[in-house]
Simulated scan of single mutants.
Amino acid sequence: MEELRELLQFLDLNQRLDLKAVALSHVLSLTGSAEGRKLILEFPELMQAVVKLTTDKTHTIAKDATLALINLTGDESGAVTLHEACQSCPETSGIIPWSLEQIVDEKSKLADPWCMVLSNLSRAESLSTKVLDEIDKDEKLILLLANAFSRIGYNKEAKLHYIASIFCNLTQSSRGRKLLCESKHNLLQKLLPFISYQDNIIRRGGIIGVLKNICFDPVYHDILLKDHDGILCSLLTPLAGPEEFTEEENDKLPVELQYLGEDKLREEDPDLRKMLLESLLQLCATKKYREFLRSKGTYEILREYHKWEAKVGGDREALLACENVVDILIRKEDEIGVDNIRDVDIPSHLGEKFIEDDKNFIEDK
C-alpha cells in the first residue's frame, strides 16, 4: 500500500509523460492479479486517479488507464467498489455517463475498451439500474447505442461488439426489457439480425442473451410473436441446417427457413445453441404459443437439429434442452391439460427426480 501511495503522485494528468507512463504501467500490471486488484480496490484515491487518466491527451496513457478499469471491474464487487470510489470525487463521479459518451462517439478511439467497462459495470444489478437511469435522461441515447451497434463501421476505430453484452445485462431487469420491447424506435428489430452474425461470438451471443431474457418474461410473448415471424426465425435460423423437408413441411415454415442451401451451418457454440432452445421452451408456456410454434414448423426444425446434435454437435446439455422443447410440441393439448405450464405445481420429490434424471442424461449415464 505504501508503494501505491508513492505511485499516486505520478498518476496525474499534469505529470511528466515518462513518469506517468511508468507508474500507470505498474498499476495496469497489478490489475492482472487478484491480489493486485484487491490492493487497488482498497485505495479510492488511486482508482480516482486512474479514471482521470482515461481523459489524458496521450492515447497510450488513456488506453492503459481504461484497460486497468476493465480489469478492476471484472467481478461485481470490483465494479461496485470502483463506482462508489468515483462517486465520492466530483471530478470522476460520471464514470457511467462518460463511458456512454465514449461508446456513442463515432470518433472515439477508446470506444471498445469503454464498452467492456460498461459491460462489466452493468452486470451488477445495482449499477445496471444506474445505467438505465442515465439512459432515461436523454431519450436519444438508447437510439444512439442501438445505431452504434447495428451500423457496422459506425466507428472506424472500434468494433463495438460489447454493446451486445450491455444490452443483455440491461434486459435482465423488467425495466431494461421494457426499454427495448416498447420503444417507438423498434430497437429490438435493429438487434435481431446479429443473432446469426458469424464474425464475432460476443456480438451474436449478447443478442441471443437479450432475446432469452425477453422470452423468460411472459409479458412480452405477445409482442415477440404477434403478426410476424421475425422473432421465431431469429431463434430457429441458428438451429436450422441444410436438411430437406417434404413439401407439406416446407409450407409450414416461415419463408426465410424454406429451402436453405447445402452450405447452411448451425450455431457452432453449444452454449448459444442451448440458450436458443431455452428461449423456445419459454415460448411454449401457454397453449396459444405452443400452437403457434407447431404451426410454423418448429418441431420439424428441431427434429432435424436433434439428429445433428446427437451425431455431430455432441453436446448433451443442448441435446437435453432440445428434447425439453420437443417433448412439449409433440404432445396434443388435451394430453398437456393446462393452458399455462407455469401454473403446474410439481411436488418436491418429483422435482428432485427430474433434476437427477437430467443430470444423468447430461453425464450420459
Rank of each mutant, 00 (worst) to 15 (best):
E262W: 13
H185Q: 13
C233E: 14
E335P: 00
P113E: 15
Y299E: 05
T237S: 14
D345G: 08
L329Q: 05
L320K: 12
N14F: 10
S29P: 02
L265Y: 05
E262C: 11
A124T: 05
Q189N: 14
L145Q: 07
I336E: 02
D199E: 14
E42M: 01
N360K: 10
L53R: 04
C322D: 06
S234H: 06
N147C: 07
V255P: 03
A111L: 05
T66M: 10
E35N: 11
D263I: 01
D357Q: 12
Q189T: 11
L127D: 06
P97E: 10
E247Y: 08
K38L: 13
R316C: 12
W114S: 03
E248T: 15
T298F: 02
K156G: 09
R203C: 14
S126I: 09
L69W: 06
L192N: 11
D64F: 06
I202K: 03
N71G: 05
E317S: 13
P113S: 12
T81H: 04
G153P: 07
G337L: 04
D364K: 13
I96R: 02
I346K: 09
A85N: 05
L69F: 01
K156V: 14
G36Y: 00
E304Y: 02
H83Y: 13
D12R: 13
N250W: 11
A146Y: 00
N71V: 10
D315C: 10
R342E: 15
I346T: 12
F292K: 00
D339G: 05
A65D: 04
L118F: 09
S279D: 09
G209I: 09
K252H: 07
I103F: 09
F245R: 07
E157K: 05
I163G: 04
L69T: 09
P113W: 13
E101T: 10
K140Q: 13
F354I: 14
P44V: 03
E91Q: 15
D133Q: 14
S174M: 12
E182W: 05
L320A: 14
S122E: 03
V338Y: 04
A65C: 12
T58W: 08
D271N: 11
L235T: 01
L253S: 01
M275N: 11
S348K: 15
G94W: 02
N169L: 01
S25M: 03
R316E: 15
L143R: 04
Y305V: 01
Q87F: 08
N324Y: 11
K20A: 06
D345E: 15
D343N: 15
I355W: 01
T66H: 02
E335F: 04
E323R: 09
L13M: 14
D18W: 05
H185L: 09
T298E: 00
V51I: 14
R16E: 15
I95R: 02
S99N: 06
A49V: 03
K20M: 06
